[in-house]
Design a protein around this nucleic acid. Structure first.
Length: 571
RNA sequence: GUUUCCGUAGCUCAGCAGGAUAGAGCGUUCGCCUCCUAAGCGAAAGGUCGGCGGUUCGAAUCCGCCCGGGAACGCCA
């Protein structure tokens, strides 16, 4: 049971433990507090079953003892039922407390404020140059960026690194293919698609003519030897690819602090290999150099191939060392598919064995594999959807809906983009990251129910109300004591935001924020539906409700941005 | 085979440092726009929480075994 963590629970657990004297700690009570299954029962509950052991009384008796002894102005009623002690919050003081808190902290409301002076490096997105940017890249990109935003929100300094796959034999292939069949104009015009087409053609033709592979290897060797012609082509291919990736990043509102990819670390590997040798960590196994990890129940980590060339772990180690030196990070996070878990566990261990003190600051954040409508992603069978196309489809659909529902709206394209892209991102980030996600296209592009558009629509709704309430001034406070259940429920959801942010960071789990957004929207829309806000005739109540709307607006806006969605004032 | 992740409503998913009747959304059926954006709100129907054991006052949640699915396991990244 998710324990609620606001100050109310804090003070309550203290006063409860005072009744016990030295027998039970306040923190113990705090951990035991929970939500009753229904609001009809109460707002907060203390199950007394565990206490019955230390106190040697039945839970029912303990609960009823409290019922009589406990007095707290924050609660309108305290009731013992069947071993549970149920508290009903005093709506006025509770709503006031929450709204005041949000109003005081504004957009900082919910921040753990514990990252000051600390640095987090995040390695995410990292597409392979000259390859399509498809739905499979959505996870790392969007989880990675959301984590970055969460850490920034907590006050950390964040370095977002796009560790481009910009080195390797595939470049020999593309260079070869380009020389044989490509043209400058077509690549400039076709962009990544053209590069991919060349790459695909290479593989096809190489089946007939294996000498092409030798040719490609040769071209890559030349590139490694800094051949000027090949280097020029290579840089150009990267440039072409990056141009396209950046379009997608822009739609998502993502910017990176560094695009240092694999090629950047090629000259930084020898030092690490030397250290491995000096520390006698390398073993020769079937010609390859490996670090034996049998003691840790893992297969060996390959450092050098039989031919002496480097491998993925070698590069990752060199990159980590570089980052530790350059950024002096407190945490270095890698967001990749769960399929790479072993790889990360292996080289993290190697880093530890090498004696680097920051080995325990490396974190792998894995996520499940994506399938589309229940079918595996497969480049060969063509079951691949480019992110660009998916976004485009979503934007088109939003545009059509907007034309129907709000034809007079200005700046429609930007809003359609924010909503369309938001729908896809929200859909992705609704799920626990570790689970394999089955991307149901119809659901991802749906705008009703638990969706991004629903959240953005609700946000726009709060904006619209606030705009229309401008004539009543903008310093709204909770002034009416005549507060009902809808208001209280809404305030309760708002009060959970700080602990949700904390868990999202602790668990590297943006979906916790997404889920919170849905709870908040549901509570607000219920409130909106049941209560008149601007049209409320009682002025005090009206101002109170506007204050609550403002608090919702602030928190919902913050939360949306934390999962890479844009705040849509109008929709 | 070894390791690891997952198995909750027809579908997509929440809930898992144990707690009172297992929750959403979609889909189905039915209500609500002379009123602040109906991309909304409400109601009904729908579940032996993969199975069997164990721990516990109490298990979807923790432990063990089994079944089913995915992924990773040496010269790709």
């Amino acid at each position: 049971m998710q324990v609620l963590k606001h100050r109310l629970a804090d003070s309550l657990s203290k006063s409860i433990s005072e009744i016990f004297g030295a027998e039970v700690e306040a923190s113990e009570i705090y951990d035991m507090l929970e939500y009753p299954p229904s609001e009809d029962i109460g707002d907060l509950a203390l199950p007394c079953f565990k206490l019955s052991r230390t106190l040697r009384r039945s839970p029912q008796i303990i609960a009823s003892e409290f019922e009589n002894k406990l007095k707290d102005d924050d609660f309108s009623s305290i009731e013992a039922t069947g071993g549970y002690l149920n508290f009903r919050i005093n709506a006025y003081s509770f709503v006031k407390r929450i709204v005041d808190d949000v109003s005081k902290k504004g957009e900082r409301y919910g921040s753990p404020e514990n990252g000051e002076g600390k640095t987090v490096v995040l390695d995410y997105s990292s597409p392979n140059v000259a390859k399509p940017f498809h739905i499979g890249h959505l996870g790392t990109t969007v989880i990675g960026h959301s984590l970055k935003l969460l850490y920034e929100f907590a006050g950390y300094k964040c370095i977002g690194i796009n560790h481009l796959g910009d080195w390797g034999t595939q470049f020999g292939k593309v260079i070869t293919a380009y020389r044989l069949w490509g043209s400058h104009e077509e690549v400039e015009k076709g962009g990544v698609d053209e590069l991919v087409a060349l790459y695909v053609r290479f593989h096809k033709e190489a089946e007939e003519d294996p000498t092409l592979n030798d040719k490609a290897r040769e071209e890559f060797s030349k590139l490694e030897a800094h051949d000027p012609e090949n280097t020029k082509l290579w840089k150009w291919f990267i440039d072409i690819s990056l141009r396209e990736y950046k379009k997608t990043y822009k739609m998502l509102g993502i910017e990176f602090d560094s695009y240092n990819g694999e090629s950047f670390y090629t000259d930084k590997m020898p030092e690490q290999i030397q250290i491995l040798k000096d520390k006698h960590l390398l073993e020769l196994d079937d010609g390859a150099s490996v670090v034996n990890l049998e003691k840790w129940n893992m297969p060996p980590c390959l450092i050098l191939k039989r031919d002496g060339s480097t491998l993925y772990p070698t590069r990752d180690i060199a990159a980590a060392v570089y980052r530790a030196r350059t950024y002096n990070f407190d945490k270095c996070i890698y967001v990749t598919s769960a399929g790479q878990s072993l790889h990360f566990a292996q080289w993290f261990k190697v880093v530890e064995l090498m004696g680097y003190p920051w080995y325990n600051k490396l974190v792998h954040v894995p996520y499940g594999t994506v399938s589309i409508n229940g079918a595996k992603l497969a480049t060969r069978s063509g079951n691949v959807i480019l992110l660009r196309d998916l976004f485009e489809q979503a934007i088109e659909k939003v545009t059509a809906i907007m034309e129907e529902k709000n034809p007079s709206l200005k700046g429609r394209y930007d809003i359609a983009e924010a909503v369309g892209v938001g729908a896809v991102v929200f859909y992705y980030l609704s799920n626990n990251r570790i689970r394999d996600i089955n991307f149901m296209l119809d659901d991802a592009l749906s705008f009703e129910g638990n969706t991004g558009p629903y959240a953005q629509y609700t946000y726009a709704r709060t904006c619209s109300i606030l705009e229309k309430s401008a004539e009543y001034g903008d310093d709204f406070n909770v002034v009416s004591e005549d507060i009902g259940e809808d208001e209280k429920s809404l305030a309760k959801v708002i009060s959970e935001f700080p602990s949700k942010v904390e868990s999202a960071i602790e668990q590297y789990e943006p979906s916790i924020v997404t889920r919170f957004i849905l709870d908040l929207c549901a509570a607000f829309n219920r409130f909106y539906h049941d209560c008149k806000i601007i049209n409320c005739e009682d002025e005090k109540l009206r101002d109170t409700r506007i204050a609550l709307t403002r608090a919702t607006n602030t928190v919902l806006g913050t939360a949306l941005e934390l999962i890479c969605l844009k705040k849509t004032e109008k929709i």
